[in-house]
Amino acid sequence: MSWDGRKEAMGLLARADMTLLDHLCQEADLPRETRVVRPPETGLVTLRGRIGGGGSPFNVGEVTVTRASVELDGHIGHAYALGRDRKKALQSAICDALCQDETRREMIEQQILKPLRKAEQEADARRAEETAATKVDFFTMVRGED
């Protein structure tokens, strides 16, 4: 069962800086009485690309991924993220479970997802602006007479 914003929320959690996520989770005082359905586990995902950028898929290489699942008041929360951070996986899974509880979704949105989204947007904008400053402006030397 998925609510509309679930994929976006899982993406924000997966991409979150672990120091920031840890800080936000502590501030939000998330419930600790969760049942761990699947303890944090690190494995591999084979990353695929496409020939020529848009053609048939091919395998490029592997990435480390850590996943975890928890149960909280009958809601199962899942987490998947690049890297090997087990704590982050557990915290993300708890957030995912809480988001499925309509009464608590807004709390997670305000206290966890919104700050994560803001931090990510700022970091993305910064990178884009730094890249934009390296854009080449060509000018043509006019020679001879018009």
Binding site: T46, L47, R48, G49, R50, G53, V65
Partner: peptide, 16 residues
């Protein structure tokens, strides 16, 4: 490490 699966092909056209 165990393998969780194969990713969806990345979209380099959508690259940041």
């Amino acid at each position: 490490l165990s393998r969780f699966g194969y990713s969806r092909p990345i979209e380099t056209g959508e690259m940041r």
